[in-house]
Design a protein around this nucleic acid. Sequence first.
DNA 1: CGGGTGATCCACT
DNA 2: GTGGATCACCCGA
Length: 175
Amino acid sequence: METEAYTADDPACHGYQRKTARNGAIFGPPGTIYVYLIYGIYHCLNVVTDRDGVCSAVLIRALWLDQLPPAIASCPPRQRARMAAGPGKLCRSLEIDRRLDGMPLNPDSQIWLEGRSSDFAAELVQTTRIGLTKGADIPWRWYLKGHPAVSRPANGDHHCSAVPKGRHRIFRLVA
DNA sequence: CGGGTGATCCACT
DNA sequence: GTGGATCACCCGA
């Protein structure tokens, strides 16, 4: 729904300097979960992409929640769309924390991906990442254009459609 | 805008 | 071992 990419030669990547106890998971094999604590109170969920030993990840910044706990399942759509609109809120809603760090994406970890239709017609916006000092100019944030759960749409994103309508593989995150 | 929050890392003892 | 800077955020004004 909304993601950012970080790679080994990218100064904003957590593994850019060196491997440590905190960021070790980001050097794992593709599909490894990397969760870190930010600003003392929030967690952020990443999925490792590049091969074992190379640091790289996709930060999951926002999701639409298909299912909610029964107590709040009937909240208005507007409110529902904002429950995982941002990497910290997303982890708070899904109760994701460092316990998942280093685990593989599969049902045994209680978090995994399910492929959906492979011809989902989506229009994506590609723009710059959020909240960075280093590598702030790299346009590696993508989101579903016009979706109400996007954390913060780029200014004037109605003009920008770097990724045209077409066939995209859409995944469902199950947690 | 600014405050809250705390793990982590580094440059020093 | 310790002090201070850093940090990919959220909220309320």
